[in-house]
Amino acid sequence: MAQSETDPKLYRAKSTSVHVTALDGLVNVNSLFTVAVFMGLSLTTPGQHSLENNGVCDAGLNVAKRLFSNEVVSFSFFLFSSLVAQGLKLAINLLNSKEVDEAFKAHIHLNFLRLGMMASAVGSVMGCIFLVLSMVNAIQIRLGVLSCSKYAVGAVAGMVTLVSSGLLVYISTVLYMLSNGKRI
């Protein structure tokens, strides 16, 4: 006898596959951002002269220290977000697996799933914020401090505008999904 579309087990498997896909996407994006973190660390060195060719416009050691600190915090948030997402994926996959004995199946509560997805999303958003802060410092090291270089100001303004717009869309989508999304 074929399962109908209204069968709760079939519905649960379909809806949780959407969650797994969303968590996969989150982990993939976090991985790309983590690469950006390490590129920022490798391309910027303290004591480097800016492209402004004016010693007054060169960023000081404190800017390089903030860059490094923000990169480490950003990496930590991305790693946190990815680990939470991977844990949720594991639980969902165990829940839906037909090959696992009933004793080893994960029983994930909807509120726990939502809390985990929210924690993962918050980790990604915070990682993005600290990545942007570190990029502001990298821009100041390469193009000159903001008070000296119109190119640095333009780069920072463009980056902050685009990233904050993207984060606004992402946060709105996550909040909508968690508050009004379909039930498992």
Rank of each mutant, 00 (worst) to 15 (best):
L67N: 06
L23E: 04
T34L: 06
S69Q: 09
G40W: 02
D58W: 07
L32A: 14
A13V: 07
V63H: 03
S42W: 01
V29Y: 12
F77K: 00
S31L: 14
V20Q: 10
P46W: 01
S76R: 07
L51E: 11
S15C: 07
T34H: 04
S81R: 04
S81M: 03
V27P: 04
Q48R: 15
M39D: 09
A59P: 03
E71Q: 15
V37F: 02
K65S: 13
G40R: 03
E52P: 01
V56T: 06
S50Q: 02
S42I: 06
G25W: 00
M39S: 12
V27M: 13
L26H: 09
G55W: 08
S76T: 15
M39Q: 14
L43R: 02
L43I: 04
S50N: 06
S17Q: 11
L67M: 14
C57G: 08
T21E: 15
N70P: 03
N70W: 01
A64V: 01
A13Q: 10
L23I: 00
S50W: 05
L67D: 04
V20T: 08
G55T: 09
L61F: 14
T45A: 11
L23F: 13
N54T: 10
S17N: 10
S69M: 07
C57E: 08
F78Y: 15
F80I: 08
N54C: 08
H19G: 04
G47F: 05
F80S: 13
K14S: 08
C57L: 09
L67G: 04
A13K: 13
M39C: 09
F80E: 06
F78R: 05
S15P: 03
H49Q: 10
N70F: 12
V63S: 05
A64G: 05
N70C: 05
S76W: 09
A22M: 12
L67R: 02
N53M: 11
K14E: 11
E71M: 14
V35N: 01
F77S: 10
A22T: 13
F77Q: 03
F78M: 07
N30V: 05
T44Y: 03
T21C: 14
F77H: 13
N70S: 09
H49A: 12
E71I: 09
K14G: 01
F33G: 13
S82P: 06
T21L: 15
